[in-house]
C-alpha cells in the first residue's frame, strides 16, 4: 500500500507524465505534417507506455550511455514517430533531428532500425523483436546483471508464428528479467484483429504457457507503472507479460479506432481537425 506522501508523489508524477505525453503527440503531428511520413495511429496508442518507460522512473538507463549494465528496451517497429520523439526527449539525440524523419540522408527511418541511438534492433519486420529480446535477456543472465529487458510488440504482430516460439522460450528459460508488453490496440492494417485473424483469449493463452499475465489500461499511468516495475533479480518462475489495452489513435477523437488509417497520411483538412482535437489523455 502506498502512503499519503507516495500517493501525492505518484499523482504529481502522473500529471507530469500526462503533460509529456501531450507534448509527444503534438510533436508526432508536427513531424508528420512536416515530412508527410510515419504511422500516427500506431504511435498514438503507445505514447503512455513509452512515457512511463522513459520518464516514469522505470528504465534504468540514465545517465544515457554512461551507466553500466543499463536496462534494454526493444521497441515496436511501427511506432517510430512516438519512439524517436521519446528518445530525443530522453536525450539520445537532438530534437531538431526529428524533422529529418524518413527523408533522404536521415538515420531516422520509417521503421525502427538499430543504427539510431537508443534503438536495439531492426524491428520493422514483425515478429522479430521478441526473439531478439530473448537473446538480450539471456546475455544479461550470463553477465549476472540485474538489468531488465523490456520488449514491446503490437497485438496484430502476435499473428506471427515466431512470437509464439519466443513466448515458449521465455517461459522455458525462466526469463524473469524480461518484460513483454503487448500494445493491444485491436487494429491492424486491414481491420480489427479479431476479424482478420483472431488471437482468441490472449490472456488465457499466455497464462497457459506459464506467464504472469497482467492486463491493464495502457493509457493509465497508475496501472502502467506498477505493471512495468518488476522485482530486480527475482526468483520468480513466471516471466511477466503485460496486455496493455490501448486505443489506436488515442489522444485525438478523429483518429481513435479509425479504420483504414494505419500508416495513412492525413489530408491538410484532416490534420487541422486532428491537431484541434488533440487533448490530454
Amino acid at each position: 500500500m502506498l502512503g499519503f506522501c507516495d500517493r501525492l508523489k505518484e499523482k504529481y508524477m502522473n500529471k507530469e507524465l500526462q503533460k509529456i505525453a501531450f507534448d509527444i503527440r503534438k510533436k508526432i503531428l508536427e513531424i508528420n505534417k512536416a515530412t508527410n511520413e510515419g504511422h500516427i495511429t500506431s504511435s498514438f496508442s503507445c505514447v503512455e507506455l513509452l512515457c512511463a518507460l522513459y520518464f516514469g522512473n522505470v528504465l534504468n538507463i540514465y545517465p544515457i550511455s554512461k551507466i553500466k549494465n543499463p536496462d534494454k528496451f526493444i521497441a515496436k517497429g511501427h511506432s517510430t514517430l512516438a519512439l524517436y520523439s521519446v528518445l530525443a526527449k530522453a536525450g539520445y539525440f537532438m530534437e531538431d533531428e526529428l524533422f529529418s524523419f524518413a527523408k533522404k540522408g536521415t538515420r531516422l527511418g520509417g521503421l525502427a532500425t538499430s543504427t539510431v541511438p537508443g534503438v536495439e534492433a531492426h524491428t520493422g519486420s514483425l515478429g522479430h523483436g521478441l526473439s531478439f529480446g530473448v537473446g538480450v535477456a539471456l546475455s544479461q543472465r550470463i553477465k549476472n546483471t540485474n538489468a531488465i529487458t523490456y520488449v514491446m510488440t503490437g497485438d496484430g504482430e502476435c499473428q506471427e508464428g515466431s512470437i509464439w516460439e519466443a513466448a515458449h522460450s521465455i517461459v522455458q528459460f525462466k526469463l524473469n528479467n524480461l518484460v513483454w508488453i503487448i500494445d493491444k490496440n485491436n487494429l491492424q492494417v486491414s481491420g480489427y484483429v479479431d476479424k482478420v485473424m483472431s488471437l482468441g483469449n490472449l490472456n488465457k493463452r499466455l497464462e497457459a504457457i506459464g506467464f504472469d499475465c497482467v492486463e491493464i489500461d495502457g493509457h493509465n499511468y497508475s496501472q502502467i507503472i506498477p505493471a512495468l516495475k518488476i522485482e530486480r533479480g527475482s526468483n520468480s518462475n513466471k516471466p511477466r507479460v503485460i496486455i496493455a489495452n490501448t486505443i489506436k489513435g488515442k489522444g485525438s477523437k478523429y483518429l481513435e479506432n479509425r479504420l483504414n488509417y494505419h500508416g495513412k497520411k492525413p489530408s491538410k483538412d484532416e490534420m487541422e481537425i486532428i491537431i484541434n482535437e488533440l487533448r490530454m489523455v
Binding site: V134, G135, S139, E165, S169
Partner: peptide, 20 residues
C-alpha cells in the same frame, strides 16, 4: 531452443549485440 529455428536465430542476434 527446440524445434523453433526462427526464434533461435533472433535470440542469437540479441546475444551477439550484447557482446557474445
Amino acid at each position: 531452443f527446440g524445434i523453433a529455428e526462427c526464434n533461435a536465430l533472433g535470440a542469437a542476434a540479441g546475444l551477439a549485440k550484447e557482446g557474445f
